[in-house]
Design a protein around this nucleic acid. Structure first.
Lengths: 337, 337
DNA sequence: CTGGTTAATTGAAACGTTTCAATAAAACCA
DNA sequence: TGGTTTTATTGAAACGTTTCAATTAACCAG
């Protein structure tokens, strides 16, 4: 006798019909207890495991959620991913991990894959600024939530952190410490996060009654790495009117800067105050613990997933939301006054 | 006229049969160029995207690969994940991210999900030491590769890093620096990695003709965090015959230790040499750059995936392998002599 | 004892593909 | 020219579920 696959074999063994086995799997409440047990036993005996593809095909709903980030290795996204995964898992969904590496091609490839899988939804930090192409997704009934991208697109949820405020917090803190000339070290200004943080800095300076042109010393680097941070120390120190404090757009930059400053015999915070961004794990644990701006990363992921699932499950009653978290200033030695 | 879904509508529009459309999708080489183009156009016009579930159901093969790790937020796994994702993606598969959080329950849950999806294979760092239950997977034709777990199980591939050698490298380096009394700071000895690293240390000490009992000062902490590292400084310094060097089982511990030592006015490496493990990104960038043991994390992930895909695609010719990478000593200031 | 409700179970018809044997058309060759 | 091979296309039959209208059984009130 050939193989009678799946549910069918279970049904035969338990002496019930196909439909009943299906009910045991999906609506156990409407199966008589005795039958339920008999079927369960049959399932255990043959070690039956439901075929997800068949199930999804017929029922028309998958359990897939896509998470498209720029780089999993980035500790920021890593924490976000945990938040996503935790909630999705609890709700019975599973997460497909997609690294776009900032490449539009890779991003499109993944979007296509997720479309084929008829994912319930996609959490995405878009590599391309134009999010209109996500429209197609929405038309197919796939929920989309923008991650770490504030957005006013009406028919899309978004979850982000207020980078303007973050920049403002950092600058205000330094201004309160009596610094009137502040270096701002950052990567490409084209990146929204960086542009926003700068706007925050400018705002704080203006509020303090200072002239941004004079109070802010702009130092741009190519990539926001520790190496670049270290290399820009020279530039920083050679300014005719040297800043007494530096705000780095990211903790890695701050780390490099710190190292470079120590090498030059500049002590922190006495000769130069320092503030980073992201509050990565090691910030608190450096030789001179680093003041930094903390973002609710895990929460970001959780909330985004919550919105996504709500949209996926209640497409009609769902209200699109634009959630913006407020960052938090964590003061440590590097800027103590 | 009701909706004629998918392939069927494409077929009608292009004036060909179902089979031909399917061929365009899966075996374009046996479709006449002219027909091919016509079908492609129809596909584009209606914006058709193949239904993955149906495809998988009928063809019997999925594109899913499961990656079950203890914690995505751990930078070690993060790099591994990148290696996995990169290769899997290139080969046309996609990765389902699973965080077991060291919980056997979560692990089992995910294994079940992956079984339902008929995943092509699973990369796993098992939370439970007994890997025999993975046998069921193998019987279902799902390939399994053990990640970061050396194993002699015959019918399973495994990829790992030689922790004994790692411990040996660290200790040997310190011994060569003239240290004859070395602190070994580590978390729970029940963890294989830690036990292995200790064995390496002992081996190196013996090779140097010293007595492990006297040369090694064992300092256990509960968790391998920076905080615990800092807290154990006191214990370290209060030994009657104080070690002149410390090997930490992990960079975070080393970081904490470093901070504690600096606070106590102990200078590194003059008064106390320090070696970490993992060579995390910030190791090179601390006030005193940290000597550490580097593991080929990305390569680990890539190789594991390669083995997995080979097994999934050539189940018959596939040869199970047990690959062990060698870690590398990266010497920096913290142990310079 | 009848008619009406509720509770369990059934079995056939999808779901949207891929597969494969069968056909038709075209190309080749002696 | 007729036979043989090659190249394209076809259409029906799966793949393993879920769904749903229909059936049966069981119960209760009047």
């Amino acid at each position: 006798m050939a193989s009678m696959s799946g549910i069918r074999e279970v049904a035969k063994r338990a002496g019930v019909s196909l439909g009943t086995v299906s009910n045991v799997l999906n609506h156990p409440e409407l199966v008589a207890p005795e039958t339920l047990q008999r079927v369960q036993q049959a399932i255990d005996e043959i070690g039956f495991v439901r075929n997800g593809s068949a199930s999804q095909l017929r029922s028309g709903t998958s359990q897939h959620i896509g998470l498209i980030v720029l780089d999993v290795a980035n500790p920021f996204f890593t924490e976000v991913a945990r938040g996503v995964e935790d909630l999705a898992n609890m709700a019975g969904y599973f997460v497909i991990l997609c690294n776009s590496d900032d490449s539009v091609d890779k991003e499109n490839h993944y979007l296509h894959v997720l479309e084929e899988q008829r994912a319930q939804g996609v959490l995405i930090t878009p590599a391309q600024n134009d999010a209109s192409y996500l429209q197609r997704f929405r038309e197919r009934g796939i929920a989309v939530v923008l991650l770490d991208r504030p957005s006013r697109i009406k028919d899309l949820c978004s979850v982000a952190v207020d980078d303007v405020h973050g920049g403002e917090l950092a600058a205000k803190h330094l201004l309160e410490g009596g610094h009137t000339r502040i270096g701002f070290v950052h990567g490409p200004s084209g990146i929204r996060q960086i542009a926003d943080r700068r706007r925050g800095v400018i705002r704080a300076v203006k509020m303090a009654g200072l002239n941004p042109e004079q109070a802010i010393v702009d130092i741009a680097v190519r990539t926001q790495s520790a190496r670049e941070g270290e290399e820009c120390v020279e530039r920083l120190l050679n300014f005719e009117n040297r800043p007494t404090a530096v705000f780095c757009a990211n903790d890695l930059l701050a780390l490099g800067l710190m190292r470079g400053l120590i090498k030059c015999g500049i002590s922190i915070p006495e000769d130069m105050a320092l503030v980073g961004y992201d509050d990565v794990e090691f910030a608190s644990v450096l030789a001179t613990p680093l003041t930094s701006i903390r973002q609710p990363k895990y929460e970001l992921g959780r909330m985004a997933t919550e919105l996504l699932l709500d949209e996926a499950r209640n497409p009609n009653s769902h209200q699109h939301k634009h959630i913006v978290y407020q960052p938090e200033l964590i003061v440590r030695e590097s800027s103590r006054f």
